[in-house]
Design a protein around this nucleic acid. Structure first.
Lengths: 191, 191
DNA sequence: TTACGATGTGGACTGTCGGTCCGTTTGGTG
DNA sequence: CACCAAACGGACCGACAGTCCACATCGTAA
């Protein structure tokens, strides 16, 4: 029964690393410009600690991403309409995609870093599976599209981080403009 | 006027490198598993030569990709309907996307390698700009969608290499199944 | 309070890889 | 055949992900 309590310094370090990584990814132009050594240094922690806690580079990025996206996830899983469950499917699909887009706009660097993903496609990340499931189910319930699973993939692809980044940075669209266009597009797909 | 003729060995080496890279990308599971040194070795060429000809890793991948996609490009630019110009826009859009999907299915490794892209998003590659232009124009002509530029991005996103790879490898769909679903989806978008 | 061992720590070290540099070779030209 | 720009190749460099292990620290039980 004597379960050793987790050490306090470990938790503190974990937070420090998460904060440092978040910070650095936000500052750097390209996620590849951020090295693990930098993260460790800024967090005031040794490299060994970093790898012990997060396994590898991807693990770290995923951890930061997960922490950041907790709020949206909660809103979708148990928030009020139109995002939460119990919304008419027809209205929920656009709301879901808009929320995801909003999140990516607010966390561009981080999202790009995650999809950059080193090895392993974004489609292996558990968070993608989760979004796909939610959107697919909503589409199925709306029943306006022949193959909900495929349509969910296709719609999610329309808000991929690097596309969003391109629209914002290269084509110079504002967040609101992108949201508007996505909304129209989703409307068209829903028929 | 005395223009020196290009050296024959240079051309030969260029081809050797292209072939070696193609080969290696096809064999390897992940594009990152292929190093420049390997390519050089298989091509029977020094590393210096490799970099002199192609600039950097991305340059090499782009060159291989460009060489491979010459045929599709030609078919779109000056081939017979429904791919070539002079096709009713309403029919051309699905044909374009199907052709692009077909190409990616036939060249999965290479396409993934290109989108992997090291630094720099796929949206910076000139070939993306070209496809986007063609699809956008066709959509504009068809006039069934409010914002052709955005819709073109969204539709092209639906055939991104890593998504196609995921559908094929993880979800186990055959090429024909993917084509079918994409066709339905495009139909829905065109309204 | 103290002694002890599980847990955590940090940074030196390693292997790999992209990219550069430069002395040498080679193919075309006159 | 002599010449030289173009092409070559591989030793070399710096950076970085990931490993390893001697050492420090926290929580526990006596």
């Amino acid at each position: 029964m004597t379960e050793r309590k987790a050490r306090a310094d470990a938790a503190r370090n974990r937070e420090a690393v998460l904060a440092a990584a978040d910070e650095l990814f936000a500052r750097s132009d390209s996620p590849r410009g951020v090295s693990m050594e930098q993260v460790a240094a800024v967090a005031g922690v040794g490299k060994g600690t970093l790898f012990r806690r997060f396994g590898d580079r991807n693990g770290l990025i995923r951890a930061v991403f997960t922490a950041r996206s907790e709020a949206v996830r909660a809103a979708v899983e148990s928030g009020p309409p139109p995002l939460g469950p119990g919304t008419p499917a027809r209205d929920r699909v656009p709301a879901l995609l808009d929320a995801l887009l909003g999140f990516k706009l607010d966390n561009r660097h981080l999202s790009v870093a995650l999809e950059d993903a080193g090895s392993g496609s974004p489609y292996e990340a558990e968070h993608y599976g989760w979004w796909h499931g939610v959107v697919r189910d909503a589409l199925a319930e709306a029943a306006t599209v022949p193959d909900p699973a495929f349509a969910a993939h296709a719609l999610l692809a329309a808000v991929r981080a690097d596309l969003v980044e391109h629209l914002a940075a290269v084509e110079g669209l504002s967040g609101e403009e992108i949201r508007g266009r996505l909304g129209e597009y989703v409307g068209k797909v829903l028929g």
